[in-house]
Write a protein that binds this DNA or RNA. Structure first.
Lengths: 192, 192
DNA sequence: ACCTACTCGTACATCGACGTCCACATTAGC
DNA sequence: GCTAATGTGGACGTCGATGTACGAGTAGGT
């Protein structure tokens, strides 16, 4: 029943989603005003396409999740768990850096169940991989898997923040993330 | 020139600072209202003691920094760098968990230079220790020290968040933090 | 016991962000 | 080129948080 949007309307919707993603990735408290302005669109126009700030956030996170899913789905999880995790980390780094604080914005405004969905998907992949690596002795198994997942996420966000602070460059970030996370997960090394 | 505060006034000030610390540690956006209520004090009374939200934040973070400094100052930094860092991590964990999101609140409301001071102090200790460990081959030296500091902080905050989410208990957190951070910093292990 | 310092509650002004309404301009699509 | 669909800016009402003002209690110190 809903007729297809007119061309310019579609363009604006895209611009708004894009701008929202970009802004919220760095400032989770960006106002609707800022977003509309960044999209080159009147605030009222934004409200024409999205009921709420919440509705907008919903679409934006939906997109982000979809992109994340599809990016991660392409990754080969077979082979040496360390190498596979390295690949996942590299991809995750790019996603984290792109979406950054969007998570924070979502946490503030979205119902908890929507967040579960967002987290469970990507996490499941990592968990499976971690468990395989633990069984094969590649990763340490003296810590809860959920904690190890949290560690990985923490490192990813730390890298994103460090880049924004200018402490490290976006180029070196993937390697740092990879090395650090793999080190944190490595089966414990006998000293000496 | 300022006469000493009356006893009840002093008590209230302490209650306010305490409540503010407790609330802001979990919700950096806690309102003045919430804080006053949690302190068992009228909102107006709070304003009697603190000009601003900023002024309150200032005192609270000042306290937090002081406590942090004195807690860390007691730690023996000599001996095996790994062991020493372990001690620092354990203490830092307690501090991080106590103060948690207070950092976020401070970042939002305080002038940047005040933040520098807060960060530089504790960081300097860790940096010194890291550098010693790098020289002695205990820690990997293929990453910027600042990044390693960021990693440690990230792990600390991750642990605090994980405890709040109920994923891990406050009891197991120190060990997890210690093991994970030391793993992340370990001189790279030759595979196999 | 008394004065003073402090507290309390309520009411009020301000501010910024959100969301809505309206009248008018513009553009897409046929 | 005409018409319906969209876009635009401005004005307006609401809401929650901040900060201030006042009058009346209440607890501390001497």
């Amino acid at each position: 029943m809903t007729r297809p949007l007119r061309a310019d309307a579609r363009r604006n919707v895209e611009a708004i989603i894009g701008a929202a993603t970009r802004l919220l990735a760095t400032d989770p408290d960006a106002s609707i005003n800022d977003i509309a302005a960044a999209a080159g669109v009147g605030r009222v126009t934004l409200y024409g396409h999205f009921e709420n700030r919440a509705a907008l956030l919903d679409v934006v996170t939906e997109r982000a999740i979809a992109q994340t899913e599809s990016a991660l789905a392409e990754i080969d999880l077979e082979g040496d768990p360390r190498d596979a995790l390295g690949r996942v980390l590299e991809a995750s780094w790019h996603l984290t850096h792109r979406f950054g604080a969007l998570v924070v914005a979502a946490e503030h405004a979205l119902p908890p169940d929507a967040l579960r969905r967002a987290h469970v998907g990507p996490a499941a992949r990592v968990i499976g991989l971690l468990e395989r690596g633990r069984d094969s002795g590649a990763f340490r198994s003296d810590q809860p898997v959920t904690w190890q997942v949290s560690t990985i996420q923490a490192i990813l966000h730390a890298a994103s923040a460090a880049v924004h602070r200018g402490e490290i460059t976006a180029d070196e970030a993937p390697t740092l993330v990879r090395d650090t996370a793999l080190g944190a997960l490595a089966a414990s090394t006998p000293r000496r």
